[in-house]
Design a protein around this nucleic acid. Structure first.
Length: 366
DNA sequence: TCGCCCTCCTC
DNA sequence: CCATGTGAGGGCGA
């Protein structure tokens, strides 16, 4: 029996949350921004509503550029408040998860679900469940969402994308090929500008062309993993299951510095809060980590990283700051450029058992 | 395996 | 002139 998988995506999420909070702005262009704090208007647009998009103000655009093109259109410029969206997201995801068999949140505004078992493979029943989910979210939170249903995660996600904004698209297993075939490869998750260019070089533009391509040629161009994923995705046969409660594998924080610098102390001062936040999340998760990395984004926007992996997992958050300082110092020594942004990450997370600190662990082990 | 880099995602 | 923040995953050389 074919699987029945759904993907739900909340429409222009942050901006829509702001509209719900203040309905009087609905008819105006709304842009939700991340202000970096470097100068008055430095930063980017995170999300914009459809009014703003129609004028050309889109995600990733510098705030100053968005303001320029929205000038005269009575725009609403809002500073992003992440915790607010997290709270809404949590409630919405609760509504979804209680209506499906398996629920997998994949972002603040999106999730996959599996309803194969409760529908018995019936796509009409599946559409009813999806409708119920959309209605519940709209009734309780006033938010519109888009849903796709299909036989794989890739198909479901492409379905929700096609259904945007506000729609529901069901792709029957038998229609999968005709749905996928005409789409450009750039619509596939995992195909960005670089991969699209590499595919185009070997004459592949559509998903249909991708599904019929020579796997070994793709492997040479794109690597083994990406090639096999793309071919299965393109044919709608990807078997990636919906998995509940996927734990995070890393915690990171990155900040834009007040000014470009190559002074370790100055960088550390501005990272202080981020490091504390990572420590908090670590403690909260009860996990241990094995790797500390620092990330430097240089004046020319190129990236450099330095990392340190311990022999055994540790959970002492003081180690994050201690090693971050050393790594940043090494990073700055390894380049002649100034740093514009700097970040810290802990990874190789594992469940803490009863170990406490590196010292204690070693003591006990010896 | 480690360290580093690249690519991508999405709001 | 302007270019955020978080996280996942893979390739590759040493």
């Amino acid at each position: 029996m074919a699987r029945v998988i759904g993907h739900i995506d909340l429409d222009y999420f942050y901006a829509q949350v702001e509209e719900v909070e203040n309905p009087s702005i609905r008819d105006r262009p709304v842009v939700v921004c991340v202000f970096s704090g470097r100068t008055e208007d430095s930063g980017v647009v995170s999300t914009s509503n459809y009014n703003a998009r129609a004028i050309g103000a889109k995600s990733g655009m510098p705030i100053s550029a968005a303001k320029r093109i929205l000038n005269g259109h009575n725009p609403v410029i809002i500073k992003m408040v992440h915790e607010k969206y997290e709270a809404v997201s949590g409630r919405v995801m609760g509504l979804v998860s209680e209506r499906v068999d398996i629920f997998e949140k994949t972002g603040i505004d999106e999730a996959f679900f599996d309803i194969t078992s409760s529908t018995g493979g019936d796509y009409t029943a599946a559409a009813k469940i999806a409708r119920g989910i959309k209605d519940a979210i709209f009734q309780t939170e006033g938010l519109t969402s888009s849903v796709g249903i299909g036989r794989s995660k890739v198909v479901a996600k492409l379905g929700s994308d096609s259904a945007k904004p506000g729609g529901l698209m069901t792709i029957l297993p038998d229609s999968t090929e005709s749905f996928l075939g005409p789409l450009p490869v750039t619509k596939l998750y995992g195909v960005g500008p670089k991969t699209a260019a590499a595919l185009e070089e070997i004459g592949i533009k559509s998903v249909q062309e991708l599904s019929r391509s020579d796997v070994s040629l793709l492997e040479r161009r794109l690597g083994r993993k990406l090639a096999s994923y793309l071919v299965s995705a393109a044919s709608g046969t990807d078997i990636d299951p919906v998995l509940a409660n996927q734990p995070p594998t890393q915690f990171s924080r990155i900040v834009t510095l007040k000014r470009d610098t190559r002074n370790v102390t100055e960088a550390m001062e501005q990272l202080e809060e981020g490091i504390a936040a990572i420590g908090g999340r670590l403690a909260n998760s009860g996990k241990s980590f094995r790797t500390v990395s620092v990330i430097g984004i240089q004046t020319d926007l190129s990236t450099k990283t330095k990392s340190k992996t311990f022999d055994i997992p540790v959970r002492d958050s003081a180690l994050i700051k201690e090693h971050a300082r050393v790594l940043i110092s090494q990073l700055i020594k390894s380049t002649s450029k100034d740093l514009r942004r700097v970040g810290v990450r802990i990874s190789e997370l594992s469940d803490s058992t009863d170990q406490r600190t590196l010292a204690e662990f070693v003591k006990r082990k010896v």
